[in-house]
Each structure stands twice: as structure tokens, then as C-alpha cells.
């Protein structure tokens, strides 16, 4: 089987999410990559070094700069004439594009796979991860999105794939990029952070969230996450949200502070290697999944913890 993997990037650098998708694709067959963007040859060169990659297809066109699904999906669909599976990381970009490709190919997509069980058989979470379904595709072509935390990252070095320039139909003329508000931060990205400090509604407001969570995260070199309640209440921006509909994370250590542990939140972090919970309610559901729990008032406990670490 020949796979085509979507390379996630910002036109300058490849994103790590690509590497997990490559691992998933390599279980299906030969791995080809697609770099679609504008002025993104450096990304293609970086992608060509991923171990085990056969070929990199580079579509460099102003119409692909922001990965608008309307422009990119026809490009991918055209490439599927000579590929058997399209594989994308389950990032917001992948989730936006892949179903559009699937519909163009008349294929039912398999979303957010956790494992490859056979040539066309996968496991995937349903009901916020409260159940795991094994599904087999009966379509001729496959369209799959990959949960990054479920697959090891492929080695970013060691390959030397050929880069082939391709072109597509360009701008479909029905959508345009206006602007973006992307937070600039030196902090590790949530989906690749080794340690995450996450705060919930108990943090009270944006100022106390910053005052209590940030110093601890700084001390541990950690990424910062939040529960839906904390995001909804405006303590932190949307891209901090961990959960069923936010980011799915599986760091070495996840520290949940003032998070009760709704099933939708647990869905996003229960595969973390070690979970530490700090909560004043000893019956909070978060303690049912925590490896280490401390019952206490976070406003006392967290500063003391930060100081003693």
C-alpha cells in the first residue's frame, strides 16, 4: 500500500505531529509525504530527512500558504490516483482538511486512530474515549487521521527522500485567509510537552491562574493546559484546552490543579504516564485516575510546592 502523509508545518518548520502520522502510515505501507504551502521548500527538505520516507511531494503555491481546505483538498484528491491511503495528524489542520478529501473521494474517513490492526482495520476512541471501537474500512481508498499520542514519533533524521515538485488547481476562489492570532511562547507545545501543569475553574480568574500556575510551570519547564471550564471562564485562551474537544495530551507527567475531572477532560489526558492531582474536594473524580493525589487548598499548596521544588 502507498500512503500519502500530510506534513504539518508553518511554511518555515515542520511540526512534530507529522512524525506520529508517519509512524502510523508506515504500518500500512510505503510512506510518501505531501508538503503543501508557500515558500516551504525548507520544510520539504526537513521532511525528506524523516527515517523511512520514500518520497516528498512538494506543492509550493501562494494558494496553499494557509492550508485552506477548499484549495488543498482538491490537490490531495488528485494525488490519490496513485496513492492508496491519505494519512493526516488529527490536528485542527488535519481535521479540517481530511474529511473534505474523503468526501471528494467518496470515502468514509476513519478519525483519530489509536492503532493499526490490519490492512484496513483500526481502533479509535468513541464517546469521549469511554469506549474503543475496532473498525474496518470497506472503501477502496483510505482516509485516516492519527491521534498523535497513540504513536511513537518517527526519527526526524536518517532519511534522504527525493523531493518531487507537484502542482494542483491552486485557488478555488471561494475562501481567503484574513488573519491569525497565534500565541508566541517559549513554553513547550502542549502536544509535545514532557510535563504539563493544568488549571481548572478553581483558579478563580485570569490573574490568579497566571499567579499560581505559571511559576510552577516555569519551575518544571512545563507546558500549560486548562480545563474547559477555565477556558470558558476566560482565564486562558482556547488553545490551552485539554479534553475531548480540545487537545489530547499524554505527557510524562500531568499535574491537574483545581480540576474536578469531568469525563470530557479525562478523555484528553488519561493516557499521561503519571497524573498528579491537587484538589480540595477529596471525592473529585480526578483522584480516581491520579497516581498521586494531594487534597488541599491550591492557593496554599501550589505556592509552597513551587517554592520547595
Amino acid at each position: 500500500m502507498k500512503t500519502l502523509v500530510w506534513v504539518e508545518h508553518d511554511n518555515a518548520e515542520m511540526k512534530d505531529a507529522t512524525l506520529s502520522a508517519v509512524t502510523a502510515a508506515s504500518k500500512l505501507g510505503e510512506v510518501h509525504l505531501l508538503v503543501a504551502g508557500s515558500g516551504c521548500r525548507a520544510v520539504a527538505e526537513q521532511a525528506a530527512k524523516i527515517a523511512g520516507v520514500g518520497k516528498v511531494h512538494l506543492a509550493d503555491d501562494a494558494a496553499y500558504e494557509h492550508a485552506l481546505a477548499e484549495n488543498v483538498a482538491p490537490l490531495i484528491a488528485a494525488q490519490m490516483g496513485h496513492h492508496d491511503a491519505f494519512v493526516a495528524p488529527a490536528t485542527t489542520t488535519g481535521k479540517n482538511i481530511a474529511p473534505r478529501v474523503a468526501a471528494l473521494l467518496d470515502v468514509m474517513q476513519v478519525s483519530d486512530i489509536l492503532s493499526v490492526e490490519g490492512e484496513k482495520t483500526f481502533t479509535r476512541p468513541i464517546y469521549a474515549g469511554n469506549a474503543i471501537a475496532t473498525v474496518e474500512s470497506t472503501d477502496e481508498k483510505l482516509v485516516v487521521t492519527v491521534r498523535g499520542t497513540a504513536f511513537e514519533k518517527a526519527a526526524a533524521e536518517g532519511g534522504s527522500a527525493e523531493i518531487e515538485d507537484i502542482s494542483g488547481s491552486g485557488d478555488a476562489g471561494i475562501s481567503s485567509f484574513v488573519s491569525q492570532e497565534i500565541a508566541e511562547s517559549d513554553r513547550p507545545e502542549l502536544t509535545s510537552a514532557k510535563v504539563i501543569v493544568s488549571g481548572g475553574r478553581a483558579l478563580k480568574d485570569a490573574e490568579t491562574f497566571e499567579e499560581y500556575i505559571t511559576p510552577l510551570a516555569d519551575k518544571l519547564g512545563a507546558g500549560i493546559g486548562a480545563s474547559r471550564a477555565a477556558v470558558d471562564a476566560g482565564y486562558v485562551p482556547n488553545d490551552y484546552q485539554v479534553g475531548q474537544t480540545g487537545k489530547i495530551v499524554a505527557p510524562e507527567v500531568y499535574i491537574a490543579i483545581g480540576i474536578s475531572g469531568a469525563i470530557q477532560h479525562l478523555a484528553g489526558m488519561k493516557d499521561s504516564k503519571t497524573i498528579i492531582a491537587i484538589n480540595k474536594d477529596e471525592d473529585a473524580p480526578i483522584f480516581q485516575v491520579a497516581d498521586i493525589g494531594l487534597v488541599g487548598d491550591l492557593f496554599k499548596v501550589v505556592p509552597e510546592l513551587t517554592e520547595k521544588l
Binding site: M108, A133, I275, E282, A290, D291, I292, L309
Partner: peptide, 27 residues
Amino acid sequence: PRLKTTNVSEPPVRQAGEKVEDVDALV
């Protein structure tokens, strides 16, 4: 349907760990 669901199972269950008494123990 184009996808055949052959099985639906419970996810692996995480066991609750231990609670520590104070910040020093947590540290």
C-alpha cells in the same frame, strides 16, 4: 455503512494511586 465496527470495548482502566499527606511528600 462503509466502516464495519467489529468490536467495541472498554478502554484500559486507570487505577487510582495514592494520596499524599502534605506538600513535602508531594515534592
